[in-house]
Design a protein around this nucleic acid. Structure first.
Lengths: 214, 214
DNA sequence: GTCTATAGGTGGATAGAC
DNA sequence: GTCTATCCACCTATAGAC
């Protein structure tokens, strides 16, 4: 009755914890986001997890496999985050703010967006990773474009041009802001830019020239 | 009199052509912009120039030296391009358009902006390159902020917020648009985004809601 | 300035024992 | 699943001849 409960998050006895495969991906992801896919090696992961390189190859036969698994997991997690936003958020404005929040939380962990990082390394990536990377950006733009269109229809947004095109600007702007913020190790730089990007969408030319300017 | 003039750009006899050091930098720059600083080796340069790796080390003792030289030359060339714009352009709008044109010409060579690429690799760069990289972005922002401020004062621009902050958005937006365009090998993606960024600056909230919207 | 030759290290990857 | 041991290709860099 009075036995001390071990410090586990889960109530079930003998909580398994993340599998080795997941832990490998966790470390690889962190390294890829901070140093790039070409900026880390199996040796780096092995050291962090106190394993050998050979063990890693059991779970991911080649670095190309590891990279693909990384992208697929990242894409899925991002997709689930977007679904959560869709479920829990009311207006398009709130959705967009939470979308930007996803980027911000990445940066607060001193990381670059995995896909922005990989975009820079695009020419050196295995073919499958290249396709998965585009797939990620495509999905992002589709989701964003839908939010933008709804928001403009509802009168929350007032940007010009087709929503799809605007979605690309937003993705580009956020990725670029992260990129530069990385070079300054300064999250405020990113948040300041993100705020402006959101403001540009909200006001556009529809808001009359008035007190809110400047 | 009727001697065939050899195909050289220069009239002087025995035109020297670019020095070996310059040719090394040319190749290194192209490789760094397409594959990243960690994505190429001395062997790649040596092969392209039909030299040996050892010869390269004579000109640039270490890869850190090579990288620094690369950044310094790039920074200087960019600075000279900005000076040319200042000299030859009338209005702020034209200056801004030509500034975007600098980015576009890089992309048309199927390259990423050197400094955007290096920003992604920031964590893995030698310390001096990190400082030089920031110096590049700083200089960009200063130049841009001045153009933006003048343009707004002259009534050509109508963006909101401080020029310095807006300058950062523009740089971020252009770098991000290049980054994503690289992953799609599609320059139109960049130009479309660049057009929007320029439009956002011109119109802001100062232009009345009228026929030009949409 | 450019070469040959080589050092010393690290990269991804495999074979086979346990 | 994880290990030891090893392979081979490639990396940056240096020594010394020409």
């Amino acid at each position: 009755m009075s036995r001390v409960i071990p410090v586990k998050r889960n109530a079930s006895p003998a909580t398994p914890g993340p599998s080795t495969g997941q832990r490998i991906l966790d470390v690889a992801e962190q390294l890829a986001q901070t140093r790039g896919f070409n900026g880390f090696s199996y040796a780096d992961i092995a050291e962090e997890l106190a394993l050998t390189k050979a063990s890693l190859h059991y779970h991911f036969p080649s670095k190309a496999h590891l990279g693909s698994a990384l992208l697929q997991r990242y894409h899925q997690a991002f997709g689930e985050a977007l679904e959560a936003i869709d479920r829990e958020s009311g207006g398009a404005g709130e959705k967009l703010r939470r979308y930007v929040g996803l980027y911000d939380s990445v940066l607060q962990n001193n990381r670059m967006c995995l896909c922005g990082m990989l975009a820079a390394e695009f020419a050196t990536l295995p073919a499958q990773m290249q396709h998965e990377l585009r797939s990620f950006f495509d999905a992002n733009e589709i989701w964003l474009a839908a939010v933008l269109e709804k928001g403009r229809h509802a009168g929350e947004f007032a940007f010009r041009g087709p929503p799809k095109q605007r979605a690309r600007i937003v993705v580009s702007g956020l990725e670029g802001a992260m990129l530069v913020a990385c070079a300054y190790r300064d999250g405020r730089r990113f948040r300041s830019a993100a705020k402006q990007i959101l403001a540009d969408i909200r006001t556009g030319s529809a808001r009359a020239n008035g007190a809110t300017a400047e």
